[in-house]
């Protein structure tokens, strides 16, 4: 199976509460580190699991290609994905300011038309814009089926995927025939969430995403990374959504500490009037 995994870098999500808003109402991420979008890391891990025998994670059965939109300095994020096992990388040269989910989806369609993967696998949302849209958009542009918010994936002979989607109140199971677009949710990296056609039933992975060994990080520097230009792929693409300003959320007024359960109940009744 050949899998295309679009990835994005985001300002350190664990320190997102340290964001500042500049005087011209823009988001100021100064001092925050760039990190791969966590959901995209899960997508890379999922792609690796789908293209291997879980008992031998060194050998790929198929190919994993990672793709990113962004400036030259974003290539370190692609190299990090190569170090964990992806085979090659594509950077689509673009300024962050020219991108929105729709431009990215159109660019991905152009890459898919060239690369002809069996599966486009990506995170369900990026944790900076929290939009949750690229998988659905690119599925429509390609005319492919979509399975969003996947918590489990089982590959059936590399021809079809059984996907358990996390939906409000439960799990919705779909079977998609490849080629398809799948977006992944948090629990896709649980030990038994993903099983390729090459992996024995019952195989359990370590929880979470795999880390690259030092040797692999060195080797990743030699893996192919090619550059494309957004303007060549989708000439004249323009954003369909424009942000004019940003603001910090209103702060919650400081609360109080109560000393006992009795005091808590009394406050909830008499003061907050919610009981």
């Amino acid at each position: 199976m050949k899998i295309l995994v679009p990835i994005k870098r985001v300002a350190d999500p664990d320190n997102a509460n340290k964001l500042k808003i500049s005087s011209d109402a823009k988001v100021d991420t100064t001092g925050l580190e760039w990190k791969p979008n966590p959901f995209d890391e899960y997508a890379v891990e999922t792609a690796l699991r789908l293209t291997e025998n879980g008992a031998n994670t060194k050998a790929r059965v198929g190919e994993v290609v990672v793709v990113m939109f962004g400036p030259k300095e974003a290539e370190s994020t692609l190299r990090a994905a190569l170090a964990t096992g992806a085979d090659r990388a594509i950077r689509i040269d673009a300024n962050d300011a020219d991108l929105d989910g729709d431009v990215v989806a159109q660019g991905l369609k152009a890459i898919v038309d060239k690369e002809k993967p069996d599966l486009v696998l990506l995170g369900k949302q990026t944790v900076d814009s929290d939009s949750n849209q690229v998988a659905q958009l690119v599925a429509e542009y390609l005319g492919w089926p979509q399975a969003t918010f996947a918590a489990t994936i089982r590959s059936e002979g590399d021809k079809a995927l059984h996907v358990g989607r996390e939906v409000d109140g439960g799990t919705l199971h779909l079977k998609v025939t490849l080629p398809a677009v799948v977006s992944v949710d948090l629990r896709i990296v649980a030990p038994k969430s993903v099983r390729s056609a090459h992996t024995a039933e019952g195989h359990a992975y370590p929880d979470g995403v795999r880390f690259a060994a030092l040797m692999a990080i060195m080797a990743a520097k030699k893996k192919p990374l090619v550059e494309e230009k957004l303007s060549d792929l989708v000439p004249g693409a323009t954003r369909k959504i424009e942000y004019t300003s940003f603001a910090l959320p209103p702060a919650r007024a400081a609360g109080i500490k109560v000393k006992s359960v009795q005091e808590l109940v009394q406050k909830l009744k008499a003061e907050a009037k919610v009981l």
Binding site: A11, P13, A16, N17, L19, I21, V27, V127, D128, S129, D130, T238, R239, K240, I241, E242, Y243, T244, S245, F246, A247, L248, P249
Partner: peptide
């Protein structure tokens, strides 16, 4: 124009659709 939470609710963006 729309207001929407971003960055895990740590910023609110004001945006408009251009189509």
């Amino acid at each position: 124009t729309y207001k929407r939470p971003m960055y895990a609710g740590n910023a609110f963006g004001t945006c408009a659709v251009t189509t």
